[in-house]
Amino acid sequence: MSLIELNGVAKAYGDLLALDDVSLSVAAGEWLSIMGPSGSGKTTLMNLIGALDTPTAGTVVLDGHDLSRASARELTQIRRQTIGLIFQKFHLIPQLTAIENVMVAQYYHSLTDRAEAFAALERVGLAERADHLPRQLSGGEQQRVCVARALINCPKLVLADEPTGNLDEENEAQVLRLFAELHQGGTTLIVVTHDPAVAALGGRTVKLSHGRIK
């Protein structure tokens, strides 16, 4: 059974068609790589799947919910329950420590649990960094906090938009190892990347060009 079903999806920004007639089906537990040149619509596609935006035409069905017809409130709900997001830039709340940044995701999902948040940080190898502020962490460490935050609520789907674009090799390897663990645990992964080696880790690669799947 597929977790994600896109059917004839288009997204227009004014005159610009960022996505054009995209149909795509992703099975639960799949690791999908998305590639394509800059401006080809990768992020736009991730936003639609991630319930951050709605399509101009077509339908997006995620875990049985038709996102194209959902209200803002319902989208928030789905995002909270089903999705873990990882961005290219490491978006952390600057005044909160690493563990507190993880706990924010718990807070908006259900209840905060410090021990659980700490376990998540342990899993990404940042146990000793739990009480550091983001500015006291390296880029790779910040991205690992983001990964811990994305997996803390055990989402069915993790969306990563160029997660390793800004990382050195060592941190990249660590993040990718975490992805592999998630994949083994049954989490569905969609990873946008420019790096063929990273894409090759996925079971399938979708290539975007000018808003269309090639």
């Binding site: 409130r73 995002r79 909270r80 329950q81 978006h91 924010v104």
Partner: peptide, 16 residues
């Protein structure tokens, strides 16, 4: 806005 948008992305409602 980045920080507040992040909270929304993480599942915070508009009201929250």
């Amino acid at each position: 806005s980045a920080e507040l948008g992040l909270l929304k992305a993480l599942g915070a409602s508009n009201l929250a």
